[in-house]
Design a protein around this nucleic acid. Structure first.
Length: 211
DNA sequence: CTCCCGATAT
DNA sequence: ATATCAGGAG
């Protein structure tokens, strides 16, 4: 079984396991998803979901966030880690959306990554989940680990991994494959102690039983 | 490459 | 004590 065939099989099996893919992050607007995803850097979704309700009650609109006091944002997002960067970036992003994009979260990769604290991973999540647009495959810590373990890439740089993955899946599947690998990674194939014995992909996994 | 950084599991 | 968690920027 070659790389392409393995990718096709992985998609098919995980699509069966996750019939309705939606993010574990709580959100109701593109801006809320952008904030939640930005806060999720090196932090669990569970933790982010405790912080975002406080954030959006304090600053309901993008304009509110743009006018917020950075020190106050730092307090609210502190528990997610990297809180100084995240607070500064969110205010800057909100300000830029108000000043440059007319108060609407932009809908292209090129525009999104001009926002502070937003790179390809966060942009891809917002595009696919909030706008139904697939311009890239979000490569986060789970996708990185799973793509390597399942033999879909040998690279370590997220940008290179994304280039390896894109030709393996139809564009309409790019948002889903991210979701599948993230959830499968959490539930069955975590960084520590992967459950190879009970894994439904163990028959096609090159790294089965390793590490 | 380094730095940013708190919360939780092991 | 250490590894890991839906990364991004200098």
């Amino acid at each position: 079984m070659n790389r392409k065939q393995r990718a096709t099989e992985i998609y098919a099996r995980l699509a069966r396991r996750y019939p309705e893919p939606k993010p574990a992050l709580h959100w109701s607007t593109p801006w809320e998803l952008l904030v939640a995803t930005a806060l999720s850097a090196q932090c669990t979704d569970e933790r982010v979901n405790k912080v975002t309700p406080v954030f959006f009650e304090r600053w309901p609109s993008i304009a509110d966030a743009a006018n917020a006091d950075v020190a106050e944002i730092e307090e609210v997002v502190r528990s997610t880690g990297f809180f100084r960067n995240k607070a500064k970036n969110l205010k800057a992003a909100a300000t830029r959306i108000m000043e440059i994009y007319g108060g609407e979260v932009p809908k292209t990769m090129a525009e999104l990554i001009t926002l502070g604290g937003v790179a390809r991973k966060t942009a891809s999540i917002v595009l696919s989940n909030a706008f139904g647009v697939n311009e890239g495959i979000a490569v986060d810590t789970h996708v990185k680990r799973l793509a390597f373990r399942m033999g879909l890439t040998t690279k370590t740089d997220p940008v290179q991994i994304e280039k390896d993955l894109m030709p393996l899946f139809a564009r309409e599947q790019w948002g889903e494959i991210n979701h599948f690998l993230v959830f499968f990674g959490r539930e069955t194939c975590p960084a520590r102690k992967p459950q190879c014995e009970s894994c439904e992909l163990n028959d096609i996994c090159p790294k089965k039983g390793i590490e």
